[in-house]
Design a protein around this nucleic acid. Structure first.
Lengths: 222, 222
DNA sequence: AGGTTGATGATACGCTCGTATCATCATAAG
DNA sequence: CTTATGATGATACGAGCGTATCATCAACCT
């Protein structure tokens, strides 16, 4: 027998090559031959580790979800103490395409999400479809907690608001990817809404958000 | 010379066949041959009236924008007197995929919007890109007017809020198209946000848009 | 009337795609 | 030292794509 190579490592190498293509040239450019070239292997190798293209896409989607989850939790941790507010802020700003990495992730994710519409295959019932639902219920939980802490008005519906925040973030992400505005402008819009949601009750002065690194007073979106 | 046929009518026939395919099987299934079959003409005819595929896509996009604009204004009119509130409600609910027609339009529009990401061609600089911007400024204007009327709190930023509403609507539309929820649920979420923005004391459940009979000659397709 | 010309049909070309086939090589097992 | 086998390479195949080419037919002008 030959070298007995680490299959998982090879699969990862190829899968991430696909993600790299998906986030630059688009998923529709992620052909088997292109992926092979990007990964620096032969076409046969790609076929060897992924019998069919759908398997490759599925594996790449799993890797993408992995990276996305990791980024979200890192973003939450970066905001300091874990409170309802930091969880909501961290989660939503993490998936907003503001820096280079989030642009990459969002681009790739959008590609897969688009594949869902056309239903070329029955993929996405594995990870992609349930992913937003999990995020949504997580956000709803945090909003409820914030209500008990008095940070969020009692008359907001947590489920409806969580869904709205997530949809807002996705819509903003699409507008950034579509070139309508840049990531900073999108963040301003998101934080404006978040600041309106999380108003500390005791302070009547609109000193809303107290997000760590930036203030949100002026808004000049192109 | 032969029959001297109406070219514009033929182009429309073919262009709408493409839109029909785009809203059912997806834009990537809208090949020249499929469009020809859907329109009931030969492949040569499609090539005759649109020298290249990009021209066909561009024309179809123009038709789509036309229909979308018409639906938005019809939706506004259906809400009764033209006020800031009805304009905002009508505009946003019109582009939300709730009934069959809006699903069709949104699906097709999403297809074109997706094409923008991959930039297979330099299209979309014609209509698609400027379309959301125009909607956004229109909404901002209406919000400002509503503020002067006292329907909207004075401390909301019209531009930021208009952008947020549009992004929210787009995000909700994507979630509907992706199968995460249905149109009615999306409308609830949107109206919850709108009701929170337009807080007049009377506000007894604003009638949702429900574009009535809305005559549009559409041939049924299989 | 008849030829010029706009409208339409049939079919071919070259390309790229996903996938399949055949061959080769290196190494662990006996 | 074989030898069976896991890993890899080269290439072929059939389908679908956008586009191009050649042919045909009907009508308008002179």
């Amino acid at each position: 027998m030959p070298k007995r190579v680490d299959h998982e490592q090879r699969r990862r190498q190829i899968g991430e090559a696909l993600l790299r293509i998906a986030s630059t040239r688009g998923l529709q450019s992620a052909t088997m031959r292109e992926v092979a070239a990007e990964a620096g292997v032969s076409l046969r190798l790609v076929q060897y580790y992924f019998h069919t293209k759908e398997q490759l896409l599925l594996a790449a989607l799993a890797y993408l979800a992995e990276q996305l989850t990791e980024r979200v939790s890192a973003s939450i941790r970066a905001l300091g103490p874990v409170t309802a507010r930091t969880v909501v802020y961290g989660t939503l700003t993490a998936v907003l395409p503001t820096d280079e990495e989030s642009v990459r992730l969002t681009r790739a994710y959008t590609g897969f999400y688009t594949l869902l519409f056309s239903r070329e295959a029955e993929m996405a019932t594995r990870h992609g479809a349930t992913y937003p639902d999990k995020l949504e219920s997580l956000l709803a939980t945090q909003i409820t907690a914030a209500q008990e802490g008095g940070e969020v008005a009692a008359d907001v519906d947590p489920a409806l608001t969580a869904a709205a925040l997530l949809a807002l973030t996705n819509g903003l992400g699409s507008s950034v990817l579509g070139g309508q505005r840049d990531g900073a402008a999108a963040r301003l819009i998101l934080e404006d809404q978040l600041g309106r949601l999380f108003h500390t009750v005791e302070s009547s002065t609109p000193t809303p958000v107290r997000a760590p690194t930036h203030r949100r007073d002026r808004h000049e979106h192109t």
